[in-house]
Write a protein that binds this DNA or RNA. Structure first.
Length: 725
DNA sequence: CCTCAAACATTTTTT
DNA sequence: ATGTTTGAGG
């Protein structure tokens, strides 16, 4: 038994957590403090020292990536297969439970998982069926409402009429939605969690089985759990307190999608015998970066309280750059990256982090023109592409005729002469007789009310699916996929798509066949699971649950561009935190709500702590946003960083100021007089600022100045006493 | 059935 | 500015 490899690489706090007796444990792990390491070593400790069987380990994460990493690191540390451990996302584990106990969960064996796109389409259709005006009841809002209820564990039947007409209508829709999902055998993401909770709650034998089975339950990113996830964890560990959670209240940035930071506080109430261990030693960043992060986050109220420290020294100061506009900002950032690379730095160690996706464009353009390889995270994932969804819909329909969402998706894709009228008829029959669309289509054919042409087209479609099903018999998974891709007419459809994207879509379909070839069901569950489910269904479920995360190719040396949210959990030697402006970051929608503002601040904390060696903060004094010129003030978060950790960078001399963003009228004036556009000035009352526009002359001459403290002002030059800086 | 233009909205994202 | 959705017309 080699305990040293488990214990030696740990600091005191980490070791204490790893070797603690089996009891409720809350590890408050600051950014870069070795959170995953603690989790991995804790599991290893139990197996190697306490003799716990791998079979009785459960570990839940939020992302597939985190689950994969944890599994890999455990295997590496223990030098054994982690196959029999339940390590997965909340959704993945819930899905596995529901597959195993479909009957007790009151689900058909062939139930399929919908992603949010499928869900939205289903809701749109439902609203149409209910004759509701989509303008008055926006599908997105309905979707949000339903998911919010499910996240809280609330079923339509639990809800009471409040007399509020909005709530009443939502309730009607929610009820109808539940019925439709049941009839079609469809389960959305929130439903997976809710169903899994109900499965354990309502089936004592099932609950007992898993309570016995899992000797220790581990949870990653606990601050991101929502109500139902936490309730599920509590059920599973009831009375045994065998729960080990790792999280950081300061990195809770998903409140807007139902995460309950309060779960950390409730944990201490619900598990009175719990122990709290704080991990505060940071192994990632320099002292200056950590001190800045600590200061920013300390502005928030009601924290558990944590202060990161390092013994690695202060390192470089944080650089602050005030750009003239967003193009100047991009220019500056890319020049710095080029300098970094020239000095031997790797591009993949550099990240540009922004608050909203729209900000990536300017950087992409700049990187493009300088020929710097880069990668943008967060685009459409593979299994979310239309062409892929279409192909999967055929496969789903083969597996489950009642899958209305898939039926509707491909009934006329590619077009085969089944028009809106025919589909409408099918929908009506389905609604009136509570049938699936497939069954309703058969009824419609037998009614003989359709024109011969429409009837033939419809029969043709049904026959096509049946033929697929017949031909697929006995084929390998990838051959089935190939069959559908080739014979559905999708390839032809995209081949004649003259728009540039057609070719790419054909390639993606070929890639889908390839993905099926590589798909190895045995990596998903263990043998018990595979008996319950066909390989095709496993493939389909996996496609939804793991929507094709583009794994960063380690071979490619690319600058990384992503939102602050997707940067959580990652680290980079050099980080650019761009667009540090009021209204952008913190975002406009957050500024007048304390709770949301605090979440923005945590996001800022996350961003700062991504940096290992160098951190650059940038903002623009003028920015084109949604087609309008705006003059934002620097972000309040900048002021929350003590100036002793910051150095201002000025690159005026080397930057060719783009004149294009300035009104032509002002342009003609810019060479005249004492002040130039972009000139830094200081005012006795308003402080420091930048000249943005000038107009008039003589006594009427006015300048528009963007002041750091007070924002935008027009001043009459004759009165204003400005000092040139 | 397809194409084009007007209207529209526009934080953050995983599963 | 830009991408997406909806409606009219070919």
């Amino acid at each position: 038994m080699d305990v040293t490899s488990i214990i030696d690489p740990l600091n005191d706090a980490q070791r204490q957590a790893v070797t603690a007796p089996s009891q409720a444990m809350l590890v408050l792990a600051g950014a870069g403090s070795g959170k995953t390491r603690v989790l991995v070593h804790r599991i290893a400790w139990q197996i190697q020292v306490l003799g716990v069987s791998a079979h009785s380990i459960l570990a839940v994460t939020f992302t597939n990536k985190a689950a994969k990493e944890m599994r890999g690191r455990i295997e590496e540390l223990l030098n054994m297969s982690a196959q029999s451990m339940w390590i997965g996302t909340f959704h993945g584990v819930a899905h596995r439970l529901l597959r195993r106990h479909a009957k007790q969960a009151k689900l058909p064996e062939t139930f399929q998982v919908m992603d949010s796109g499928d869900q939205l389409r289903l809701i749109k259709r439902l609203l149409a069926t209910l004759n509701l005006d989509a303008d008055k009841w926006p599908p997105r809002q309905v979707q949000w409402y339903i998911n919010a209820q499910k996240d809280e564990g609330i079923r339509a039947r639990h809800m009471m009429e409040t007399g509020d007409p909005y709530q009443r209508q939502m309730l009607i829709i929610y009820k109808a939605y539940e019925q439709l999902c049941d009839r079609s055998g469809l389960v959305d993401f929130a439903e997976l969690l809710l169903r899994a909770h109900e499965l354990l709650r309502d089936n004592p034998d099932v609950l007992d089985f898993y309570q016995q089975r899992f000797r220790q339950v581990h949870v990653d990113e606990f601050q991101d759990t929502n109500t139902i996830q936490y309730a599920w964890l509590r059920l599973l560990t009831e009375g045994k307190d065998n729960i080990f959670v790792v999280g950081d209240d300061d990195q809770s940035i998903y409140g807007w999608r139902g995460a309950k930071i309060e779960n950390i506080y409730s944990f201490q109430k619900h598990y009175p015998n719990h122990q709290v261990i704080k991990l505060e030693q940071n192994y990632r960043s320099t002292g200056n970066i950590l001190k800045a992060a600590n200061k920013v986050i300390s502005v928030n109220d009601g924290r558990m309280g944590k202060e990161l420290w390092t013994d690695a020294g202060d390192g470089d100061l944080i650089s602050l750059y005030a750009a003239f506009n967003e193009q100047d900002e991009a220019h500056f950032v890319v020049e710095r990256i080029r300098a970094w690379v020239n000095e031997g730095g790797l591009r993949k160690d550099v990240a540009i982090l922004y608050r909203s996706n729209a900000q990536s464009r300017q950087f992409e353009e700049r990187l493009m023109t300088t020929g710097t390889p880069y990668r943008v995270y967060g685009g459409l994932r593979f299994f979310e592409r239309v062409e892929i969804k279409n192909a999967l819909a055929y496969l789903r329909l083969m597996s489950n005729r009642d899958d209305d969402a898939s039926f509707e998706r491909v009934i006329n894709t590619p077009t085969r002469g089944i028009g809106a009228k025919t589909i409408d008829d099918i929908r009506n029959i389905a609604r009136d007789q509570s049938l699936s669309l497939w069954a309703a289509a058969i009824v419609l054919i037998n009614q003989r009310t359709l024109s011969a042409r429409a009837t033939n087209a419809l029969i043709g479609f049904l026959e096509l699916i049946k033929r697929f099903d017949g031909q697929a018999e006995g084929l390998e998974l990838f051959e089935k996929v190939k069959l559908v891709v080739e014979k559905s007419g999708l390839i032809e459809l995209y081949q004649k798509d003259k728009a540039d994207k057609g070719e790419e879509k054909v390639e993606n379909l070929e890639e889908l066949v390839n993905a099926a070839r590589l798909f190895d069901a045995s990596t998903i569950g263990d043998l018990e699971d595979q008996e319950n489910l066909g390989e095709l269904d496993m493939f389909l479920a996996n496609a939804t649950l793991e929507s094709g995360e583009l794994q960063g190719d380690d071979f490619d040396d690319c600058v990384q561009l992503m939102t602050l949210h997707s940067a959580k959990g990652l680290e980079f030697k050099q980080v650019f935190l761009v667009g540090m402006e009021e209204g952008l970051f913190p975002s406009q929608q957050s500024v007048d709500d304390v709770g949301r503002l605090e979440e923005e601040r945590r996001l800022c904390y996350v961003g700062i702590t991504r940096a290992m060696k160098q951190l650059y903060l940038t903002y623009a004094e003028s920015r084109r946003l949604y087609g309008r010129e705006t003059y934002p003030r620097p972000s309040r978060f900048l002021r929350e960083i003590p100036s002793e950790h910051i150095q201002e960078v000025r690159m005026r001399a080397t930057v060719t100021r783009p004149v294009t963003s300035v009104k032509p009228k002002a342009q003609s004036l810019q060479t005249e007089g004492k002040y130039k556009l972009g000139q830094r000035v200081s005012h006795a009352k308003f402080g420091e600022g930048v000249v943005l526009q000038m107009e008039g002359d003589g006594a009427q001459e006015r300048v528009q100045i963007n002041f750091k403290q007070v924002g935008l002002k027009w001043l009459i030059l004759a009165y204003a006493q400005l000092d040139v800086l």
